[in-house]
Design a protein around this nucleic acid. Structure first.
Length: 475
RNA sequence: GCCGCCAUCGUCUAGAGGCCUAGGACGCCACCCUUUCAAGGUGGAGAUCGCGGGUUCGAAUCCCGCUGGCGGCACCA
């Protein structure tokens, strides 16, 4: 059997990392079995549509390397892949259900529905439709429809039945049909609800494994019923755990970072994000922490994913990202760094990359570390006096350093280092203290890349100018 | 309120009856290296396996109950 999985986001703005988690599993599982990974756009809620959102989905997936085999953009044999272009299909299947007696037209107004919901809530009952319109005969319903009355189509839920939902990670989950509402399948605007659309599309698109967030678990029995009503074979259901905030609640903007774009903007690498996500709810058979996505595809299995909702630990992601950054070649890193350092020339970035490579965990941190390159960072004169260095000592240090640099320049780091070390030895200065004064005079900060190697980034003249400036401050 | 899912160090997890005086990783602490910060190296603290009952010669591992956390109860997905 050919494995087919799908990623089915709504184009409502941004890609949630929780969606990325599911998409990663979808993609990996499909590829593991030489199957196809399908992207379907679930745009059935006209009110929530956001322009440009679909484009962002393509960009996000491309950045991650999770390229769909079929999608609205790439095409494919089971299209269209945008639900808003499949309206007649849903209509047809909904009508089929009505004819078979598994669904019915409902003419209740939103106001009436709201009213009964309120009453039920007051009585501490589960808010549910009272099935009032089930009594209307099909003939009468069609008459009212012909008169132009607006209606929705609802599915009939059996009165008292145990409905079994098979979930790959949790086994069989039993639901009581009395707890399930007569779900709307077609809205009054003619659009399908999620429930009808997924079942119809997953079947028509020959999806074999449905990977989705566990928040869908409570509505799964409705889907089971629909498959039964249609007489279709169920795909394998996999409900993935919800990613959590540190307080265990569902991962939210309030406490964490939910948008894929944010991770990209911060300079997380896609391979690091994927590696990190893979380790949520799953572990490498050899307990490896760092592994490629290809290796993941090879060794993982969907059924080994744990249903425990994991806390999204940004600290660990940052560590992992640092590992991936250090694994990059200098050339690769230079390319990655460019968008984050618009103030620097390509030559400067090339020089700086090896200097900061093992000092950053996210690419965006490069800007902080290298700020001194394009800016003379201001500081108080007292800031120069670190580690017990007196004003007089600092002056002498900088004066002598200036003389040496005037003589040997800034581009031969080894020679400069040797000369400075000789100076330090001669004067019996504290090495650490000397370099700290020097560092602040040049960078205005205590935390910088190695100072001698950083000087060529500024050039001979600028280095001398900054030393002069520091000496003025001390005068 | 009702229904459902889940439960091992702070966090991610290993563990599928004896190999567990519970292993690894992140984070944290200390030391080493060192011109700052990192990186790297070494070591350390940190989990009576949510609680209570069983089953068993033996339970983190199996069963039941409880508690707790989370999720869902729309003409949103």
């Amino acid at each position: 059997m050919v494995v087919r999985t799908r990623f089915a986001p709504s184009p409502t703005g941004f890609i949630h990392v929780g969606s990325v988690y599911a998409a990663m599993l979808d993609y990996a599982f499909a590829k593991k079995h030489q199957g196809q990974f399908v992207l379907r756009i679930e745009d059935t809620d006209q009110k929530r549509l956001v322009k440009g959102a679909e484009e962002r989905i393509y960009q996000g997936l491309e950045w991650l390397g999770l390229i769909p085999d079929e999608s609205p953009k790439h095409g494919g044999p089971y299209g269209p892949y945008r639900q808003s272009e499949r309206l007649e299909i849903y209509q047809k299947y909904a009508r089929e259900l009505v004819e078979k007696g598994h669904a019915y037209y409902c003419f209740c107004s939103p106001e009436r529905l709201e009213k009964i919901r309120q009453e039920q809530k007051k009585k501490n009952q589960v808010p549910m439709y009272d099935r009032c319109c089930r009594r209307i005969s099909l003939a009468e319903a069609q008459k009212r429809l012909a008169r132009g009355e607006r209606a929705v189509i609802r599915m009939k839920i059996p009165d008292n039945e145990k409905i079994v939902v098979p979930d790959l990670l949790r086994g069989e989950i039993v639901f009581d049909s009395r707890m399930i509402d007569d779900q709307v399948l077609i809205k009054s605007d003619g659009f399908p609800t999620y429930h009808l659309a997924v079942v119809v599309d997953d079947h028509l698109m020959k999806i074999t494994h449905v990977v989705r967030g566990e928040e869908w678990l409570p509505s799964a029995p409705k889907h089971v019923l629909l498959y039964r009503y249609f007489g279709w074979k169920m795909p394998v259901l996999i409900h993935t755990p919800t990613l959590r905030n540190p307080d265990k609640s569902k991962l939210s903007k309030r406490q964490g970072h939910t948008s894929l774009d944010w991770y990209r903007e911060q300079g997380f690498l896609p391979e690091a994000l994927l590696n990190f996500l893979a380790l949520l709810g799953w572990s490498h058979p050899e307990e490896k922490e760092i592994f490629s996505f290809d290796e993941f595809i090879k060794v993982f299995d969907l059924k080994d994913v744990s249903p425990i909702g994991p806390v999204f630990d940004l600290k660990k992601l940052e560590w992992m990202n640092g590992v991936y950054i250090r694994q990059k070649s200098d050339q690769e890193l230079i390319g990655l760094l460019k968008p984050f350092l618009p103030q620097m020339t390509p030559e400067q970035i090339s020089q700086a990359a090896p200097l900061i490579k093992e000092r950053i965990r996210k690419l965006i941190e490069a800007a902080d570390l290298l700020e001194f390159v394009w800016r003379r960072v201001d500081y108080d004169p007292e800031f120069l006096l670190q580690r017990g260095v007196t004003r007089e000592q600092a002056r002498e240090m900088l004066l002598k350093t200036k003389e040496i640099i005037e003589a040997v320049g800034v581009d031969n780091s080894e020679e400069l280092q040797q000369k400075l070390l000789e100076l330090i030895a001669r004067k019996q200065w504290n090495t650490g203290a000397f370099f700290m004064v020097f560092r602040i005079a040049i960078c205005g900060k205590k935390i910088t890349p190695p100072i001698i190697e950083s000087l060529p980034l500024l050039g001979h003249q600028e280095v001398l100018a900054r030393l002069s400036l520091a000496l003025e401050k001390l005068a």
